[in-house]
């Protein structure tokens, strides 16, 4: 029974942590609204590199839609960003040397640059205006600083369950 439970927990851990990070972003949004948007992407990045099969693409899409609902952004904005980020993350996973937090952070920092770029590009296409380029990059910088903490926490949880 315990084995089954642990097996289920291992299976749903990536999705579960992404959901928790997404909901935590609601609280964090009171402090730093832009960095908060990066929080679930951190989970997506952390898990997509070692265990891409545990994060189905359809679930990424659904979670991104949920993110749209939470932050009341236009539907479809986050799914595009998340899916492109996910694809980019998988495609460049070879660059991560082991599961060291440092290499993961650098990888995340480079990849997550896509987020403010895409956010502004999509906003430009949709509303003929920018979403605040400076703000988006400040959010990116804040997220890069938070990432090691998130990665360490997730690693700790993973170790406990394994």
């Amino acid at each position: 029974m315990q084995d089954i439970l642990l097996s289920w927990l291992r299976r749903f851990l990536p999705i579960g942590t992404i959901v928790i990070l997404m909901l935590s972003a609601v609280s964090l949004s009171r402090v730093s609204p832009i960095s908060a948007g990066f929080l679930p992407i951190m989970g997506l990045h952390f898990w997509s590199i070692p265990q891409p099969m545990l994060i189905p693409i359809s679930l990424v899409f659904i979670l991104a839609l949920l993110q749209d609902a939470i932050f009341a952004t236009e539907i479809g904005l986050h799914p595009i960003i998340w899916l492109v980020f996910y694809a980019a993350s998988l495609s460049s996973a070879f660059a991560v040397q082991g599961n060291r937090v440092m290499s993961l952070t650098i990888h995340y920092a480079l990849l997550s640059l896509l987020v403010p770029i895409m956010l502004n590009a999509l906003t430009l296409l949709k509303a003929r205006g920018f979403a605040g380029i400076g703000d988006a990059f400040v959010g990116w910088a804040g997220a890069c600083l938070i990432y090691p903490l998130v990665a360490l926490s997730l690693k700790w949880i993973e170790k406990k369950i394994r």
Binding site: I49, P50, P52, M53, I57, S58, V60, F61, A64, E74, I75, G76, L77, P79, I80, L83, V84, Y86, A87, L90, S91, S92, A93, F94, V96, G98, N99, L122, L125, K126
Partner: peptide, 28 residues
């Protein structure tokens, strides 16, 4: 941790493109 670039199967890749397109449709 060294997942190959082609970690996703062909079907998954199609799914990925389809979902991105769907998101574009939703947005625009």
């Amino acid at each position: 941790f060294l997942t190959p670039v082609a970690a996703l199967s062909g079907r998954s890749k199609i799914w990925l493109v389809a979902l991105i397109l769907l998101a574009f449709v939703c947005l625009f």
